[in-house]
Design a protein around this nucleic acid. Structure first.
Lengths: 253, 253
DNA sequence: CGTCCTATTGAAATTCTTCAACACTCGTGG
DNA sequence: CCACGAGTGTTGAAGAATTTCAATAGGACG
């Protein structure tokens, strides 16, 4: 069984036993919730020798399309968009990843999606080979990566339904609901008021939803006028009643 | 009904070396290309004790939405559609699986997609627990399942681009191209004439592409009149020049 | 022969896009 | 300090793509 959910107290107790956990990793979110949670202290040490932290600004490219993907990363902060581009410039965001998600495509050196920073992003990255060597010795790590792949698959399939079958309003509502639930997973059930920053600009939202900027804007206006959401400074969204937003994600016809 | 298509002679020759391979598995496609390829003979024996073959007719449900998914399966023949359904009846196919794909969602007992037979289908299925026990002992098996998850993820992301950003004609062309390449992976590069049966009826194609039946029909007519495809009996497609079809998948605007 | 299922086609209605104009914010440099 | 431009977001009107509604046709089967 995986022990991902460790409360702080237990983690601290663990770290007394193996004080060799690299300084870099000690304060790291990914160390507990991310892939590194599956690593033993000596593995962390080994990994940290090849590790580098890096910061990216909004819209900066993290991995070029078709590039050799020689490095894996943990997202330490920020939101990353995975996009696919067509020859004539049409673009589709095929995945959004939040800290402390893992970034990289195991078992394949080329990828036809490119990764861009949606917000300011910091990554902790390391060579592919190091991790791949570790997988063989530690099934828990392989399992964790497998889990993340399955999670991403579930999300991609949810989004297929949204892209294929929902109206523009439903799409925008679904996007806002997605962000709201991701920002505050606890809140999801509670249905109280929620406030959050949109990690994407309108153009990105459009590329995520398969719409135009204008349509996105119009639908946001519509939701705002209906009182389902409150918008400040274009990017700050308040949802007075999450249930009402959720209802907009799937309106009976 | 179930026809074992493997040439018996070759399979028998192989099995001289490991006579413990269960009779059921000897002629099986999945034994080589599917997950079972990662199993050792003694594991196959163990697995085959809990294995049952089953045939389904077109549109029959293999796994109900939200059902406990207690069993895994290999697709021995036919095409399976994975669908998501909305409360008001809107439907989206979120994945197509072909023999000898693996069917089932590891590490999760509920799934919100339902699996239906698109064509006549035969499955070889076994309890989840047996496979999961084996994963611990054989990293190769875990790896194979991981690979399949990643493959499905890549496919889902390809499809997100298609659903989000392509026109109706491009969507239909992309679908036909997908099927053509899947039916005959070798042919993909050659660009000669190809003939195949559509595994999906118009309604399913529509649910796969996020379109209506009528639009699908119109686009097929359009491709037919342009000479890009030849249609017989609604289901039999001939593609004289695969390159030309591929060009229709992404028309510059 | 009639019925069900599947597929096609036409015309009207709807949704979304395209094109165009305008508003707001922010940083830079005159 | 203000003008300017770039980047971002909103809104309106016209146009295009797709859906909806409705009618028709062919094949399979009892």
């Amino acid at each position: 069984m995986t022990k991902t959910m460790a409360q702080t107290s237990r983690v601290e107790r663990q770290d007394i036993h193996n004080s060799e956990v690299p300084a870099l990793c000690r304060a790291c979110e990914a160390r507990h919730r991310g892939v590194c949670g599956a690593l033993k202290p000596d593995q962390l040490v080994k990994l940290s020798k090849h590790t580098s932290k890096h910061a990216y600004g909004s819209d900066e490219e993290l991995t070029a399309t078709g590039d050799d993907v020689r490095r894996y990363s943990n997202i330490l902060s920020g939101v990353v968009k995975l996009t696919r581009l067509m020859a004539d410039g049409r673009q589709q965001i095929v995945g959004l990843q939040f800290a402390p998600d893992f970034l990289g495509r195991p078992f394949k050196s080329r990828s036809d999606v490119s990764a861009e920073a949606a917000t300011d992003v910091t990554l902790c990255s390391f060579p592919k080979s190091v991790i791949e060597d570790m997988i063989d010795g530690s099934p828990e790590l392989g399992h964790k990566l497998h889990e993340q792949a399955l999670k991403e698959l579930d999300e991609a399939r949810d989004w297929l339904l949204t892209l294929g079958r929902k109206s523009a309003t439903e799409k925008v509502a679904s996007f806002l609901y997605l962000i709201a639930s991701h920002i505050d997973p606890e809140h999801k059930a509670k249905d109280g008021p929620i406030c959050f920053e949109l990690p994407l600009k309108r153009a990105d939202i459009a590329d995520f939803l398969g719409l135009t900027i204008e349509t996105v804007s119009r639908q946001i206006t519509k939701l705002r006028k209906a009182g389902t959401i409150v918008v400040e400074h274009n990017r700050t969204i308040t949802v007075p009643d999450l249930r009402r937003l959720r209802d907009c994600c799937e309106v009976d016809r």
